[in-house]
Design a protein around this nucleic acid. Sequence first.
RNA 1: GCCCGGGUGGCGAAAUUGGUAGACGCAAGGGACUUAAAAUCCCUCGACCGUAACAGGUCAUGCCGGUUCGAUUCCGGCCCCGGGCACCA
Length: 802
Amino acid sequence: MSKVYNPKQIEKKWQTAWDKAGVYNTKNTSKAKTYYTLVEFPFPSGDGLHVGHVRSYAAMDIVSRKRRMQGYNVLFPIGWDAFGLPTENYAIKTGIHPAVVTKKNTNNFRKQMRALGLSFDWNREVNTSDPSYYKWTQWMFLQFLKKGLAYKAEVPINWCPKDKIGLANEEVVGGACERCGTPVEKKIKNQWMIRITAYADKLLAGLEKLDFLPEIKKQQEHWIGRAEGARIQFPIFGSQSVISVFTTRPETIFGATYLVLSPEHELIDILKPQIKNYTVVNDYCVTVVAKQEEDRVGSKEKTGVRVEGVEAVNPATGERIPVYVADYVLSGYGTGAIMAVPAHDQRDFEFAQKYSLPIKIVISRSSVENSKDVFEGNGRLVNSGNFSGRDCQEAKSDIIKKVGGRRAVTYKLRDWVFSRQRYWGEPIPVVICGSCGYVPVPEKDLPVVLPNVKDFKPRDDGQSPLASVATWVNVKCPNCKKPAHRETDVMPNWAGSSWYFLRYTDPCNTRIFADKKLLKKFMPVDWYNGGMEHVTLHLLYSRFWNQFLYDCGFVLAAEPYRKRTAHGVILAGGGVKMSKSKGNVINPDQIVASHGADTLRLYEMFMGPFDQAVAWDFSSIEGVSRFLGKVWRIHHEKVSATASPNRQLTVLLHKTIKSVSDDIESMRFNTAVSACMIFVNACFDQPVVPVSLWKKFLLILAPFAPHITEELWQSFSSEKKFSSIHTVAWPRYNPQFLITDSVTIPIQINGKMRDQVIVPVGSSQDHVFAVACEREKLQPYLRNASVRTVIFVPDKIMNIVL
RNA sequence: GCCCGGGUGGCGAAAUUGGUAGACGCAAGGGACUUAAAAUCCCUCGACCGUAACAGGUCAUGCCGGUUCGAUUCCGGCCCCGGGCACCA
């Protein structure tokens, strides 16, 4: 055995040995308690694995390894979120088929992950672009269709003119395409939609019981955006039509001095004959609607025009009030129309000032504030007819009743645009028939396999390249057998990732997406870690998808994830984002080659708090590398079977076992590593280290540094049959060793630490005080002074107040 | 603008229900070993005052104030950085 730690000589060897022995394989039939640890499966990009992946994967690998050692039957799977635009764009550029690129990239990712010693069960690998997988994604789409949750609608979509693709709201960042940065345009398209809004309440309510980080819950709540208020109808004077508004402040209706319609509002066309300045209004609407998304966000100055010839009646006051169209009212939220209460809403106030509209105060301020501010708070009603004098919150219900409104709830969450006019995705399994309309592909005919094409470029008419594959497109209607054609839209890449955690439980099943027995055994996921960037999209979609399958009776748990945590991003040196264009991306392969996988893993755990952003620092890697070198040396130079037990070291070991055990559970990996370092430093100072202590230490280090600990562990074994350290029981600490018989108590004088005394554990205040009074160091303070009080916390601290 | 995080030595950071601020690691400086270097080992390492050297003292956890015997920790107000949402009625 080498005297010097050389990871290259050991890491490959043990990776192969673990594989051969199936150390990390999950057992479907085991009677042991199960534990399901999940990491977000990667999109297999050509760039390979990123050090950011390693942070999350290594952390959950540590948790998984600890659970295995604790006796659990652990499911820790991995796969590939393989559909998606980057691969398709690469295909367009190079002409290489996305499936070929995907194959190459997944091979690379797999190799990289194995080199890191991640304990995935490779028998359960899934790939969303594999027909045997997406068969079930398509099947689930048909279930949505069956339940009326998938539907087709003419919707204004966010259109990226460069990628020639419709984007979901979630894929638009600051008015630009999330992928290429091109400003998006609005385009009306016939799209498949999924009615996620039907689950808004369930998604919100379900959060309560889940062990998600508070900030994750907050973000989801915010995204769902539930708002309680009322719908109130304002009759149009001299017309049958009404304008329905949604408001969260119905109690301010006496102050509603005008109404505003969004530029897309349907009433503008309906009321056309009545509108005196229709051309002006219409022109305004057309310009605003055509304007790009980016112009509609931000605190831009509000614009609008009055709809002349149309007046609404305020149902509370009976007064006639003007109607405007304005760009500050959104068509997609509430009813697309508002009652404007300029005295008590900042936006309405700004608009009213600009267009000289009346501002009527209906809530009196409780305190004297700057009168220039719009008062958006609560208080006593004024100028509100019979309601004047009452508390606005208390009167709310009565006011809604009086004006004939009804309580209503509105969400910010929108339905999910599920169509993509692209190639590299799951074909939507629908046939369009001239006589039968949209006909689902019969389940027995699934999967609808993505045909092989040569030209991946989206067509200029905005259709998917699939539309050009005549032999694939033209089919008989499954219903009436007349000539028909296939839907050529494909699904967004959020589809396959919305249920992958279910497939892992039973990845090879051809009868159903997963057997119920296995779902029952493994689901829900016990601990899911991933990036904060997926908290509103993937995490919400997959919760919805699972809840839907639950309502259909296909899965047994409504919520897919019991616990969700998130890791901080890894930045390049200097705290800037890693990006290819800046050339500051760190490839894990290079660290594995120079320092070994164990060092890389340990470094990423040690570099800072797990949930916070941290900057890469090459020189700090040396620290953990040296630490492992010390472990190696102690093992070979100091560990001895004949060394007598050392009380001090034993106590420290048990302390270390406790802190490492606890720290893993709360993801304080950085302090776990530092606890290991403290123990190793202590061993290093000893002439000999008893083997019994050392073995226990190797066990707690094993999840962090699986290769070196395996190598050292095997040196104790004389058996021929390989028995991995990673299958040995997790050591327990003995609380007896954590109790010491004496304790150091800091003595403070007036709150400042002046001295320390060593006393037996449990010493009384009197005893500690007596000892303190003897101390020479304290004499200058205690002499010529009278003690006012003594604060004493047993075994902790004494503060003498003079 | 709103909602989350965060701000501690030269740097990454510890401090688990208010109780010794800076564990652990990096960098730096000094020394040992070496023909030399690397590697390794030992020592020093918040700032300032002080001392021949010890000792000792003062100030320090973004800023201002409060509660407390005692505050990095709790409360109020502000500044800065990161993330999310953004005219959501």
